[in-house]
């Protein structure tokens, strides 16, 4: 057995070394995934902010656009799927599933009408997918 002791020591050292390298590689892979995910989340938040920006544009006379029961309801066709190409020569594409809704907040105030707009954007470029929720309160003076 003495003849094989060095080989056993070496085998044990190689196994330990393998575990160390695998764990370090896994840790770096995880870091890379986090970096990529943060970029994807960044773009998903931008998409949700764009919807909020469109709500900001709604004028007092177009208030019905935020009324879910009205024919002019701006989110009637939601959720929608949008493809967005970007990059210097549009070499990248992101697919977003955008859902949005609004609800009237009954404050009992005869002078102000408020609507709570909820936007949910999902980007499935990464697994698990990235989801962003934004809430915006739009007020109209009566």
């Amino acid at each position: 057995m003495n003849d094989y002791s060095d080989v056993l020591y070496l085998t044990a050292a190689m196994v330990i070394y393998s575990f160390l390298t695998i764990n370090t590689a896994r840790s770096f892979l995880s870091t890379s995934e986090t970096v990529i995910r943060s970029d994807v989340e960044y773009r998903t938040i931008m998409r949700a902010q764009d919807v909020i920006e469109q709500v900001k544009l709604v004028q007092r006379e177009d208030e019905n656009m935020l009324d879910p029961t009205h024919i002019d309801y701006m989110f009637a066709n939601y959720p929608i799927t949008e493809n967005e190409t970007f990059g210097y020569s549009d070499e990248y594409t992101d697919t977003f599933i955008i859902d949005a809704s609004s609800e009237f907040i009954d404050e009992g105030d005869p002078l102000i009408k408020r609507y709570r707009v909820t936007v949910n954007v999902v980007n499935e470029s990464v697994d698990p997918s990235t989801s962003v929720d934004l809430i915006f309160i739009k007020s109209f003076e009566r």
């Binding site: 960044y42 920006e53 900001k56």
Partner: peptide, 15 residues
């Protein structure tokens, strides 16, 4: 490495 940002901004003072 590339990083990208795109937004449509509605300036409050233009509405």
């Amino acid at each position: 490495y590339r990083s990208y940002w795109k937004r449509r901004i509605v300036a409050n003072n233009l509405i």
